[in-house]
Structures are given as C-alpha cells and as structure tokens.
Amino acid sequence: MKKLDLIATSAMGLESIVAKEVRDLGYECTVENGRIAFKGDELAIARSNLWLRTADRIKIKVGEFRATSFDELFEKTKALPWEDLLPEDAEFPVSGKSVKSKLFSVSDCQAIVKKAIVSRLQKAYKRTSWLEENGPTFKIEVALLKDIATITIDTSGAGLHKRGYRVDQGEAPLKETLAAALVLLTNWSADKPFIDPFCGSGTIPIEAALIGQNIAPGFNREFISEQWPFIPGTVWDQARNEAEDLARYDQPLMITGSDIDHRMVKIAEENAFEAGLGDLISFKQMRVQDLTVKQDYGVIVGNPPYGERLGDKPAVEKMYREMGQVFSELDTWSIYILTSHPDFETLYGRPATKKRKLFNGFIRTDLYQYWGKRPPRVQ
C-alpha cells in the first residue's frame, strides 16, 4: 500500500516530545501546533498506536484543501479516494469543528462531508441505494481553520492515554500521556532510583516502570483500526510481536510512590497490578516532609497539589516550604515539580535550573527542574 499521511495529535507543549517518539520509531516528521505529521504504511499505524507514550491519538489525513463555500467543500471531499480506505458497509460518523472560517456552521459542514463520502462510495461500489453502515467504524472529522479544511480518520478509538490499567483514580488524576512526558523530560534511566512523593493513583510511577522496561504503553489495549479491512490482522500481530521482543521484563527497577492519603496508595497498588507492574513499584503512605533516601543520583518527579482552591492555598504553601527544606539535602538528586503556583520558587527556597511550560488539562503549569550533581565518571 502507498504511504499514508498520518498525524499524531498532541497536548500543547508536548509536541517536541511526541516528535522525538515518532522519529525514534523511524519516521521523519514535521511539527505544528498540537500535531506531528509523518508518512507511513499500515504497520506505521499499528506501531504508532502501540508505542507513542505522549501523543493523544493517531489520525489518517485523507485530504486538506481550501473551502469557502459548501459546494467547494462537497466537491473537494467527493474527489478524495474514500474507497481505498472505507469498505462498502463502513459505518462513518462525521464530527467537526470550525475556527475563523467562512463555513462556520459545523453541523452543515458535517452533513455535507457525509453526503460527499456517500456519493463517492455509491459510485465506487456501484450502489444506487443508501449504504448499510453496519460494518467497521471509521470516525471522520472535518476541521476548518482559516478556510482550510482538513479531513481525518481516527485510527485510535479511545484516546491513547487510556492504557487500560486504571482501575480507580482520585479527584484530579494526571493524564497518562502527561505523566509519561514528565518522566521523559528528566535525566532518569532504569538503573537509577525514582521517587514520586505525591503519587495519587500511581500514574507517574507506573509510566516510569513502563519506560524503564521498554514496554509499549498500548500493548494491553485494542484500537478501532484493528477492525479495518485494509489493515491485515498480520500487521497488528507483527507490531505486537515486535513490542514483545523489545520489552525488557528482566530489567530491575527502583521505583517508589508515596502519598499522604492511604486510600490513594491502595488505588495506586491496584492500578500497578492491573498494569502487570505490581511487583516492581513500592508504594507507601507518607508525608513528603518525611522523605528520606539511602541512594544517590536519583530522580524525583512530583505533581503536588497546586492550591487552586482558595482554602487549600496556605496548607499547600507551607508544604512547598517544607519540601524545599527536605529536598535541599539531596544534592545528587534531580528534582522535577509540576505546579501552577506562580510563587513556587520563592516558597521552595531556590530558583529552578530550568522551567518548562506545560498544560495539565486546561491548567497552565510549569515544570520546575532542579538538576543534581553529575555522578563521578567511571575510570
């Protein structure tokens, strides 16, 4: 099959990390706001769904063109080779969005794209009647931005952050994709100790363990495109066998997650067991102020409470001060803290080595990075 135009969608601020992951899979890519474009065949669809830890979903770009009238949208959509991708019985709901475009009625754009695809498929499959739509599902989206229409098909189904291991969660769980990004933004490697002192439902330690043992994050879930006729089942088998061969299940890990709430510690343990990593991560109930470490040259990654609700602010600020005092002793450790609190560095007691803007859902946050001493060179 000829190469398809693929798009890995991304949360704002994570584009460069997703792009590195795409390149690590062996695909050249270009980076735009919220999307990473690359070319690939059916195997690329399977691989990128299985392996991309920080992308939101993988889409096929069927076409991109200028459209300032409904006639233009209809004709240019109809001109695309839909029969190459959609079988005669395909179910294909159409969603849409429009930003700064003359065609601002999303429901009309959806209806026109749907009608154009039906017209193309009826001609391709020599049908005069309406199509049945009782076969595999192809979720199509028409997105208009400044009069440019981009028409895509989602290959993932549920978002890629849904790894399948989350049995339960707390009030404000960190998305698995962002948790993986936080780990990838550190200097951590599997031979170093790793601590998350605010582990909540365990997402950061679990993602660290998946990275440490090189386990594909999508290995234990299904994707909508597995049902599509143009991607043979053998392709998915090949991609999963590759992932199995690349996993390092015998890699020992030193990963700890702690939380002040004993209920969250229990949930974290359950989630880790669901991910098949229960024996690899140790969870314990503990205040961050009581943290002690025995090893050197480790990494701490934390997503503490931000104090967004007014009543919580004084307690959170007190905790940031105490955390700064405890962590100041760990001069060989690298520490990475995600928070939206604008005065974090002042409260913590020292300026960060580096700051990186990230979005936790719709909350603008900064990742404060404190780099520890380098380990001595082995002679």
Rank of each mutant, 00 (worst) to 15 (best):
M1Y: 10
K3A: 08
A19L: 00
R23A: 09
G26L: 07
Y27C: 01
R53Q: 05
R57W: 00
F65S: 04
A67H: 05
T68P: 03
F70Q: 05
F70S: 03
F70D: 01
E72H: 04
L73R: 00
K76G: 01
L80C: 00
W82I: 04
E83L: 00
P87T: 02
A90G: 07
V99Y: 14
K100H: 15
L103K: 12
D108S: 09
C109E: 10
R120E: 13
Q122W: 09
L131I: 05
A143H: 10
D154K: 05
R163M: 02
Y165V: 00
Q169M: 00
E171M: 05
A172R: 09
L184F: 02
L184K: 15
L185C: 10
W188M: 07
W188C: 05
K192P: 03
I195G: 14
F198K: 14
F198T: 14
I211V: 15
G212K: 04
Q213A: 12
F223A: 09
W228Q: 10
R240K: 07
D245H: 11
D250H: 07
I255H: 11
K266D: 01
E269P: 01
D279R: 06
F283T: 05
R287I: 00
I300P: 12
V301K: 09
G311N: 13
R321I: 02
L330A: 09
S340K: 15
H341T: 10
F344Q: 10
G361A: 11
Y368L: 14
P375E: 05
P376L: 10
